[in-house]
Amino acid sequence: MGGTVFKYRDNVDTDVILPARYLSLSKREDLAAHCMEDLDREFVARVQPGDFIVAGENFGCGSSREHAPIAILSSGISCVIAASFARIFYRNAINIGLPILECQEAASEIRAGDKLEINLASGKIRNLTQGRTYQAGGFPPFLQDMMDAGGLLAYLAKKKEEVLP
């Protein structure tokens, strides 16, 4: 998959990803319409299907609202790449099927507007603009299985409960 980068800082919290004033919304398109609103007011107008969010440390800190990863996924972002993720956001992303990759080097070198191509299965990130390649950390097999199944509930619905660790 390929697309253009939106680059953000360290400690992007879920309040700026999806402000609490929209928490009573639940439709995916309604949440996407306010994605990143308090951090980057141009995001919604500019984002194209397949684009990437690249950020620093502790992406998605704060509130446990799943509305935040849902808004990002529904906006067309194909993967969030960060130096690190806050733990609830990390779980939520995996659980709902929003692709994420953790990679310090990519997070520090990639710039806004760079064109990327990634391979989720291998964790390989190609920066077409800078001619660089980065290798993101992998996931434990059980989490990879869950992501492949389409998220936690899809996994449970397939009666795979017994194969959880």
């Binding site: 446990s64 799943e66 939520n92 998220g151 936690l152 509930l153």
Partner: peptide, 8 residues
């Protein structure tokens, strides 16, 4: 946790 974890 998030809502999906709650559901699970």
């Amino acid at each position: 946790v998030g809502s999906t974890d709650m559901a699970a």
